[in-house]
Design a protein around this nucleic acid. Structure first.
Lengths: 255, 255
DNA sequence: CGCCTACTTGATTGTCGTCAAGTGGCGTGG
DNA sequence: CCACGCCACTTGACGACAATCAAGTAGGCG
């Protein structure tokens, strides 16, 4: 398996998980060789998407889980007023679609935020495979459980924090994600629009904009279009109030 | 866990799921006899709790899932400022603890809102049992997935709705729950305090109180302490669904 | 009976949403 | 290549909804 971290995983063909640098964060942790092999057989149905392309939409029959290989996605629901409510953003290594298992159809829309690629994993096959592998089965449960835990942490953020704190939390979470993936945690891009961020954090676009400018003015960050530089990680962390979401070392510190 | 001697209404003993009227909503749907039998063996470790008693607390090692038999629970996290943030309420038939699977410790506190009883299910055993049963395995996944979907719907509520709409949504949800369980959907009790509701809906207690009085004044509901009567289901439903913060026919309806 | 907690009600403040106008980047078409 | 328009974003002014502060009421329980 190539450990090359550059984006060379194309051309995407069936059975090509080996060439995917996301394999370790996908579903394959701690599996035996045969288990991994079987997983590869069913999981590598690749799909390439352009910016703004729909991966699936709300209400459509649920067949596939998607593992993000590259790019970024947003999932959202449409409110009765016809507006998007962003549920979450999804970066490489994330799995999308678990929330569809219960109802049998997707409960939200998933759209790529830029050029992106995913592995489509037929859920039926995956479930069948789980029967033979306790480890895989447990991995699945853990993945969903982690999503739930993350969602609940996020609920606290939305429920108790001010606009500034939400933005700060958001940036710290992103920063941690990039850190964990071996990228720069101080200089990175926001793949999503201000409007998306606003919806996600339950704020008005104007508030997001204003808050970002203020953070920049206070030398905590530097924003230029979609690129962010964190200039004062301490302050940002403090502003966020340190109970943060995601797979963060912070969260693992327990409390 | 010592067997409590005050147990009268339930013959709570190991292997007594048969006597539990929640069996069908627990985990046993569509299982074979032997599967059900095995499930019973591991799942009927009963526990009785008084009002305000802790089922588990945040950070503690995760061993058991709990199925609510009777009574009600709240799960909450403690914010950095030391305040409760209610994550969810749990009524008979609900399973508590799934969010702990990923991290290996409970990610929130669970406390009974009144006298309550639960089945403690050792997760290890359940996972093992799942290996042999595709159906049970799938049931598990579906249960977690349903929780996620629910959580996301709730996120939309919190993210886009006004105080009145949140309260209305909350009441409708409760009403639906009771309806599905064969109880009255128009007359029921609120097992949780106003403060709990406030935290859950990300509002101030005063706002909850005021809004409830206003709904009562407008003859949509009747509240007396912890008992609620829904007098105009139509209106309540309408109030729950739509948000109009600007020009508001709804707000007019409320005067 | 009196205390304590839960809840209600009223007055005031503040944060953030809304409305409105303006800027800048970018693609399109002339 | 520039002009144009579109869209995302920014910035400012204002107002609304809900939070906060502050009393006051009502049950529950010792």
């Amino acid at each position: 398996m190539s450990r090359d971290t550059r984006v060379v995983q194309f051309p995407l063909q069936s059975g090509q998980c080996q060439s995917c640098d996301r394999a370790s964060v996908c579903l394959g942790q701690g599996l035996s060789d045969t288990e991994t092999h079987e997983l590869l057989n069913i999981s590598a149905v690749p799909k390439l998407l352009k910016r703004g392309q729909e991966l699936f939409s709300e209400g459509h029959a649920f067949d596939y889980l998607y593992a993000v290989r590259s790019g970024a996605f947003k999932t959202y629901k449409i409110t009765p007023e016809g507006e998007e409510q962003i549920i979450d953003f999804h970066l490489p290594g994330d799995l999308i679609g678990f929330n569809a298992v219960a109802r049998g159809y997707y409960t939200c829309h998933a759209v790529s935020l830029d050029t992106a690629s995913v592995c489509a994993i037929r859920f039926r096959d995956l479930a069948t495979l789980c029967t033979g592998s306790i480890r895989l089965q447990e991995t699945m449960l853990k993945r969903i459980s982690a999503l739930m835990a993350r969602e609940e942490d996020f609920l606290v953020t939305i429920g108790t924090k001010s606009a500034t704190q939400r933005l700060a939390s958001f940036l710290v979470t992103l920063s941690n994600y990039y850190l964990n993936r071996g990228f720069s945690s101080t200089n990175f891009t926001l793949p999503m629009s201000r409007t998306d961020i606003a919806s996600y954090l339950s704020l008005a676009v104007e508030t997001v904009s204003r808050t970002l400018t203020r953070l920049q003015h206070d030398k905590v960050i530097a924003v230029k279009r979609n690129s962010v530089e964190i200039k004062n990680h301490e302050r940002l962390h403090a502003l966020a109030g340190f109970r943060l979401t995601g797979i963060t070392p912070v969260a693992d510190m327990l409390h």
